[in-house]
Design a protein around this nucleic acid. Structure first.
Lengths: 153, 153
DNA sequence: TTGCCTGCAAAACCTTTGCAAGTGT
DNA sequence: ACACTTGCAAAGGTTTTGCAGGCAA
């Protein structure tokens, strides 16, 4: 039932890369934090628990490799760092994000929602869409609820 | 008829900032390159033509200020630099981008296109949308046409 | 004068790279 | 051996910050 990491291993092998202990530890961290949007530094610190001797450069190289193989997506929310997100297996498209401008939380939307918009863009702008990035900035339900409570006093 | 820069001046003043010659030159560059997506360095080099004594730090500080006042939007296409885009006056939402993965060109979509999607997101995720970022990655019409030509030989 | 603004240089940051050593086949 | 991978340290590139001087009200 350890399928996910085995499949990633195969993806690496079929591209002539090895799943070294360092790479495995990095992938494990990403799997354990699928909900989060870790920066390279975040991943590095977490990987150090499993493989204390690992270097930051190796983490960067591994994340770059995984990005190349489309196992993870590199994203950027405008703070100075890149963040890395494991792709959903079999997902045709990159998922979307809800960034809360009050508490900073980042939630994910797995649904596509963009089929209609993409159809319009492809036709009207004559643009062949390969991927997309969609992020909404606003107030999340948690802050929303919190504000309601405070107003109710 | 010099309305645009005058209005920006007022926006600065009403937030207790001055429109200094350096800031004016920076805004002028942004106005002249509304179609482009200039990096801070790009802006710096262009501003130097108008105000050769300006420092890079001032350009950064001005762009930061303009971002704060929502006169420009800071965007990031995943190459290591931030880019700055003048907001459309009166635009309720940030415009979208088409990034060509072949030639690197960035085209803009001014239409909203997202009304329906936003309605779904607000209702289903209980998220109050304040702004959005939407970027499509793919093949632009220019590269598309170019490829057709080459295949026709 | 006072407070904002500027230019310069230094610093801070994130990320990439060079290289010698290590690894598995 | 051989090719790939690693850790470390150094370098690279972008952005921010400290500070003394300048400017306008």
């Amino acid at each position: 039932m350890e399928g996910r990491i085995d499949r990633i291993k195969k993806q690496l092998h079929s591209a002539s890369y090895k799943l070294t202990p360092q790479r495995e530890a990095t992938v494990a961290v990403l799997l354990e934090h699928e909900e989060d949007h870790l920066s390279a530094e975040d991943v590095y610190l977490l990987v150090k628990d499993k493989a204390p001797e690992i270097g930051l450069a190796t983490v960067y190289r591994t994340l770059e490799l995984l990005t190349e193989l489309k196992i993870v997506d590199k994203i950027n929310f405008g703070d100075g760092v890149s963040r890395f997100d494991l792709r959903q297996e079999g997902a045709a498209h990159f998922h979307h994000h809800l960034v809360c401008i009050e508490c900073g939380a980042v939630d994910e939307i797995q649904e596509d929602l963009l089929e209609d918009v993409e159809a319009v863009v492809e036709k009207r702008w004559n643009f062949i869409i390969k991927d997309h990035r969609l992020t909404f900035h606003g107030i999340c339900w948690r802050c929303h609820d919190k504000n309601d409570e405070n107003n109710g006093e």
